[in-house]
């Protein structure tokens, strides 16, 4: 098979590292060669962050470039708009409806674009829009929106749900397990 590319994008501090660890574990358990590339350090302080996940028979480059991603999972609407060029023709975008103002918007230097989802649809891109933040709060904490989005993603990947459950058990500490399983299930239901 050809190498498949999944990008996880969002704002530093939104929990993309756990999401990529979950996905990486799922793919490893399915016997794929897997590479996951993260950026640590400065951009984690509220900057735009991106994680690349690639899998297939043999993966070389750990990074994903413009026009290469099969799926983009976005934790924030503006980040969806930012990373659209990375989507392959016919690729899918899964986005949370959460909006976080970047500093240039906070200072009033620029405006946060309006109706981002609509504009992305108009560009002919397949988009699933989910209120992951509310669903996460429903599961018990706003911090679980990353796992909600993994639930949405799972419906696009075609692996058995038990594979995801195992990965959650491996990646999440015992005391947060139930909460995260609930968040994941809400993601699946709302895909």
């Amino acid at each position: 098979m050809d190498t498949k590319s999944v990008m996880i994008v969002g704002v530093g501090g939104q929990g993309s590292l756990l999401a990529s660890r979950l996905l990486g574990n799922v793919l490893l358990s399915q016997g794929f060669d897997v590479k996951v590339s993260e950026v640590h350090g400065m951009s984690q302080r509220g900057g735009s962050v991106v994680t690349y996940v690639k899998y297939g028979e043999k993966v070389y480059s750990p990074i994903i470039e413009k026009g290469e991603a099969d799926i983009i999972i976005s934790f924030e609407e503006l980040e969806s708009a930012r990373w659209i060029p990375y989507l392959k023709k016919g690729g899918h975008l899964i986005t949370s409806t959460q909006k976080i103002d970047p500093m240039p918007v906070i200072t009033g230097a620029v405006k946060y674009p309006e109706n981002i989802t609509e504009k992305i649809k108009q560009a002919g891109i397949d988009i699933i829009s989910v209120d992951a933040l509310s669903l996460a709060e429903q599961a018990g904490t706003s911090k679980a929106s990353n796992v909600v989005l993994m639930g949405v993603l799972s419906t696009k990947m075609g692996f058995d749900e038990s594979v995801w459950q195992n990965a959650i058990e491996q990646c999440v500490p015992e005391k947060f397990l139930e909460l995260n399983k609930k968040a994941f299930a809400l993601g699946v239901q709302n895909a």
């Binding site: 704002v11 530093g12 501090g13 400065m42 951009s43 984690q44 302080r45 509220g46 900057g47 735009s48 470039e65 413009k66 026009g67 290469e68 503006l78 980040e79 708009a81 930012r82 659209i84 060029p85 990375y86 989507l87 023709k89 970047p102 500093m103 240039p104 918007v105 620029v110 405006k111 946060y112 674009p113 981002i116 504009k119 992305i120 108009q122 560009a123 002919g124 891109i125």
Partner: peptide, 19 residues
């Protein structure tokens, strides 16, 4: 040359900030 779609307007940058 790679082919890709663009968002229809300028996307504000999101630099890192103090928490």
């Amino acid at each position: 040359k790679s082919e890709y779609a663009e968002f229809s307007e300028n996307v504000p940058v999101r630099p890192p900030v103090m928490c």
